[in-house]
Design a protein around this nucleic acid. Structure first.
Lengths: 266, 266
DNA sequence: CGGGCATTTGATCTAATTCAAAGCGAGTGG
DNA sequence: CCACTCGCTTTGAATTAGATCAAATGCCCG
C-alpha cells in the first residue's frame, strides 16, 4: 500500500498505466512534475523521511528525468560514473559480464529503487542496466548527492542505508545461489518480487513477470529449461497458476515453506 | 607491497608476527598507537588519501581497539548496529544464516578491510563476524563516521567507495556462484585471496589458508569433499602445491585461465 | 498471416553430492 | 615422551539434481 498525501491507495495490478494514474491523482496540475516534493515516490526513494524544508534543498538534485525504452541501456559496464538513477516507473535488469564473455543477471530493479551504486568505487560502472519495460528515471548527479548529504543529515543517512540495503540483498542472493535447490530458488524469487510489489501497493498474489525464463535462470544460477520445469511443477502442485508471464500465487504458504532457506528481510 | 612512511617493505609470508613486526618498524615509540596518523594501515583503511590535517579530525573516530581471539565473535546477526570495524590484523569470516538454520559464509576479511556495513540499513547486523585467527579491530562508531564525513569530504568519499566496493565484490561472488564450475570457483577464490594479500605486501604465489575446506566450500557453494578433490586435481596438474593449508601457486597462468569467468577487479 | 522468439516437455548425460571409510596432524594428559 | 583423541582432510563408490541436446508448441507483432 502506497501512501500518497496521506491517502492510501490499493492496486490489484502493476503496470505503467497504474503508476501514471497515480501520478495523475497525486499531482493533478503538474503531470510531469520535476520535483521530489510532488513526486509520489518520495516515501520509497532517496528522500524518505525528509521534512518539507529539507526536501526543498534536495530538489536541487533532480533536474533531469530520462525516459528509457524497453530494451535500451541506461548505462553500460565501463561507462564513466557520474549519476545514480532513481527508478520512477518501469523495470530494469542489471547484468555483469565476465572476461570470457559469460553474462549474468545480478539484479532486477523496480519503482523507487536506485541504480548505479556499483559505479562509485572506480568512477566507472561495472554492470549494464537495461530496461525490461519502458521506464523513467530521475538522474541524480552523485557529486550533488554528496554535497547535499553533507548538509542534510537525513539524506546522508538514506544514502548509507540504501547502499547497505544493497549489500544485505546481495547476501541473500549469495545464500540463494550457494545453498538452495532449484525449487527453493524460484520460490524465494517469486516471494521476493511479490513482496517488493506489495510494498509498492500492488497485489501480493498476482504479478506480471517482466523478464524471460532465461533471465530468471541467469539470476538464479540455473538454465531456462530448469526454470520452466520448476514453474510447471509449481503449477502441477497448485502452488501457482502461470499463463506465460502472468503468475498467480494460489498457495503462498507452500511457497514460503519452500523458500525457507532464504534470509528474510528484517 | 605496503608503503610505510614512504618506505616500501616486502614480505614473503603473511602472519600476525609479520604485521606486528611492521607495527614495530612503523611506530617504534608507540607500539600500540591508538591513532590513525601513526597506523601503518592508513593507506589501506578508511582514511586513505586524507591530508595530515584531515587525519587529525578523523583521529577522534578511533578511540577503542578490540582484540578478538580465534573463534570469537565480533558481532552476531541480530546484534544492534553501532560501529563499523576496521581490521588491523587477523582474519575474519562473515556468515549469514537462513530461517531454517542453513548457514553460508558470505565473505572473508583481511587486514585493512571494513566489517559491519550490513548493519546500517536496519540498525541491526544481519550476519555473524567470526575471527579465524587472533585479530584486532578499530572500533569506529558509525554516528561519528557520519558526523566527521560531513566535514571531511575525502572521508565521505571513502565511506561511499568502501560500500560500493562491497557491492561490486558481491556481484563477482554472484557471478562465481551462478556461472562457474567447481574448478573455476576455486581458481577464482585462490587468485582473489592472493591478489588481496599481494596488495598488502605479501607474496603473490604463496599463502596460508586461514579457513577449513568446509568454510571454503560454504563460500563457494560446494561441498567440502568437492573442494578437497579440486585441490587434489590442481596439485596433480601441477598448478599448485598444497600441504594442508599451505598453498604455493606454481602455475598462476593456468589458474588465471581457469578463473576467466570471474569478473576481474578494475 | 508468417516469422521469430519464448516456452514447454522429453530423453540422455554429467558434474557434483552423498555416503562411507581411512589417513593425517596438532594438541592433551597420563 | 608417547599414546590417544578429535577435528580436518583425502579418497572411493554410488546417486542425483540439474544440464544438455532435441523437438514441438505457442504467442506476439509487424
Amino acid at each position: 500500500m502506497l501512501s500518497v498525501h496521506g491517502v492510501s491507495i490499493d492496486f490489484d495490478q502493476q503496470s505503467i498505466q497504474f503508476i501514471d494514474k497515480l501520478t495523475l491523482m497525486a499531482t493533478p496540475s503538474t503531470l510531469h512534475a520535476q520535483t521530489c516534493s510532488t513526486c509520489n515516490l518520495r516515501e520509497l526513494c532517496l528522500p524518505v523521511g525528509l521534512s518539507a524544508q529539507e526536501l526543498n534543498r534536495v530538489e536541487q538534485l533532480v533536474n533531469v528525468r530520462k525516459r528509457v525504452k524497453r530494451g535500451d541501456v541506461l548505462f553500460r559496464a565501463g561507462d564513466a560514473f557520474a549519476n545514480l538513477y532513481a527508478l520512477r516507473f518501469g523495470f530494469f535488469k542489471t547484468t555483469t559480464a565476465s572476461p570470457d564473455g559469460r553474462e549474468q543477471v545480478t539484479g532486477f530493479q523496480m519503482v523507487g529503487e536506485i541504480l548505479g551504486l556499483d559505479g562509485i568505487v572506480h568512477d566507472q560502472h561495472t554492470c549494464d542496466a537495461i530496461a525490461l519495460e519502458d521506464a523513467e528515471v530521475c538522474v541524480l548527479p552523485f557529486d550533488k548527492i554528496e554535497e547535499i548529504s553533507r548538509e542534510v543529515n537525513q539524506l546522508q543517512s538514506n544514502v548509507h542505508r540504501i547502499m547497505s540495503r544493497e549489500i544485505v540483498r546481495d547476501q541473500g542472493v549469495m545464500m540463494m545461489l550457494g545453498n538452495m535447490r532449484a525449487e527453493e530458488r524460484l520460490a524465494a524469487f517469486l516471494l521476493n518480487l511479490v513482496q517488493r510489489l506489495q510494498e509498492r501497493g500492488f497485489s501480493s498474489t498476482e504479478l506480471q513477470l517482466r523478464m524471460t525464463r532465461e533471465e530468471i535462470g541467469s539470476y538464479l544460477g540455473m538454465k531456462l529449461e530448469t526454470v520452466s520445469r520448476t514453474f510447471s511443477k509449481f503449477v502441477a502442485e497448485k502452488i501457482i497458476e502461470a499463463n506465460q508471464r502472468h503468475i498467480v500465487i494460489t498457495n503462498a504458504a507452500a511457497l514460503r515453506r519452500l523458500a525457507q532457506a532464504q534470509t528474510e528481510e528484517i
